[in-house]
Amino acid sequence: MTDIFYTKDHEWIKVNGDEGVVGITSYASEQLGDIVFVELPEKGNSFDQGKDVAVIESVKAASEIYSPASGEIFETNSSLEEKPEIINEDPLDSGWLYKIIIKNKDELKNLMSEEEYKKLIGA
C-alpha cells in the first residue's frame, strides 16, 4: 500500500512502509521550465523535514528542494545526472529525486493530501 503526500513547496513523497520516494509535482516542473541540472544529496546523509536537500536548476532559475520528511538518504536517481529533462517529462514517476528511510512517520501529518494540494494550486 503506497500513500502519497505533498508539501506547500511542491514536493511529493510516496510512502511505502519506512521508505519514501521524493520528487517534485507536475505543477512545479511546469513552473520551472526546461530543467538543465539537478544537484542531488549524497547517499548516507540525513536531513530534517523542511531542510533544503537538493537544487533543481532551469535556465533562468534555481530552486531549493526541501525534504518532505526527516531521515537518511539511501538512493538517488542517478539517471538525472545525464538527463535532467526526465523531470520535465515524467515528474511523478521516473523523474523521482531520492529515496529516504523515514525516521518519524508522525511528521507526515504535517503534509498535504492530494486533494489539499490540488486545492492549493487551484487545479
Binding site: 538543465v36 541540472f37 536548476e57 532551469s58 535556465v59 533562468k60 532559475a61 534555481a62 531549493e64
Partner: peptide
C-alpha cells in the same frame, strides 16, 4: 550556467 549568479540566486 547563470543560475549560480547573484542576479538569479540572490542570497544563495
Amino acid at each position: 550556467l547563470a543560475t549560480r549568479e547573484q542576479h538569479i540566486r540572490r542570497e544563495k
